[in-house]
């Protein structure tokens, strides 16, 4: 079958139109903005893919990696979905979200009260004082995380996990796929060596601030098409926007320019 020039032309146009739509699609449906400009620019579909896990690896507390992980929350809240924090350590402090501009009204926190076999829990009185601070079994945390990831009403689930078996990891990934939200895992440095079922894996290292502006060196350890990239980011103190660090006054240590891979 032969086509006339005009037919071929319109076919060409249709194809272009299809391509254009296919490009728009993932941005609106398949992905959600990470809330971090430089990261969105390199991720395929300009954001985290829905129904996947994202790992943030930081050496220790106080690094600011958690606040970077939270950047996705405003996009989730705008869509009307809920946020869930799995908090076995019972140290999550919601007032800290205020500086990130996150409204905690649709936030749920899951904790693991230690069980008492014999005495039924008394409801009237608060009894936080005598609760033992033992870590709840890891399996319970993973179970709760899996259940939460599977819930379609939850847009983002955040949990910090030190160790995670590969099989459980895979289960979490499948649960996220089913629920369609984004699972954000905060990991310690030992996680770097372990295999990952996360779609995106980032390593964060704090850098000395410029004035009060916080800075980080961030390495994209795993990502389709853009792994191995390293940036230096900073957060604007007023707007909370995370962007590439300005190079006006380079810090003493080596700085990493944007786009280097």
């Amino acid at each position: 079958m032969t086509l006339t020039w005009k037919q071929a032309r319109s076919l060409e146009e249709l194809r272009a139109e299809l391509d254009r739509r296919a490009e728009v699609q993932p941005r609106t449906r398949g992905t959600i903005s990470s809330g971090i400009g430089p990261l969105d620019r390199v991720l395929p579909g300009e954001g985290y893919r829905r129904g996947t896990l994202v790992e943030w690896i930081a050496p220790q507390g106080g690094s600011g990696a958690t606040s970077l992980a939270w950047q996705v929350a405003p996009s989730v809240l705008r869509e009307g979905a809920s946020l869930v924090v799995i908090d076995p350590e019972e140290e999550f402090y919601p007032p800290g979200l205020a500086t990130l501009g996150i409204d905690p009204s649709r936030l749920l926190v899951v904790r693991f009260p230690t069980k008492r076999r014999d005495a039924p829990p008394r409801q009237g009185r608060r009894q936080r004082s005598r609760r033992s601070r033992d870590d709840p079994r890891e399996s319970e945390v993973v179970w709760a995380l899996e259940q939460t990831l599977r819930c379609p009403a939850v847009g983002m689930t955040l949990a910090s996990l030190e160790s995670l078996e590969s099989r459980s990891f895979r289960r979490l990934q499948l649960a996220a796929e089913q629920g369609g939200g984004v699972g954000v895992l905060l990991r310690g440095p030992t996680a770097t060596k372990a295999p990952s079922w996360a779609e995106v894996r980032l390593r964060v290292e704090p850098k000395p601030s410029q004035g009060k502006v916080r800075r980080w060196r961030v390495e994209l350890l795993k990502c389709r098409g853009a792994a191995g990239m390293t940036w230096e980011w900073e957060r604007d103190r007023e707007t909370g926007v995370v962007s590439l660090a300005t190079q006006l006054a380079p810090p003493a240590s080596r700085s990493f320019a944007a786009g280097a891979s």
């Binding site: 749920l108 899951v110 904790r111 069980k115 319970e140 709760a144 259940q147 939460t148």
Partner: peptide
């Protein structure tokens, strides 16, 4: 209300004080 089944499940296994709202 889509959160309902999730909250029920978490409370069922972890206890009534497991799912909290700040």
């Amino acid at each position: 209300y889509a959160l309902g089944p999730l909250i029920n499940r978490l409370r069922g296994r972890l206890g009534d004080r497991a799912v909290l709202r700040p």
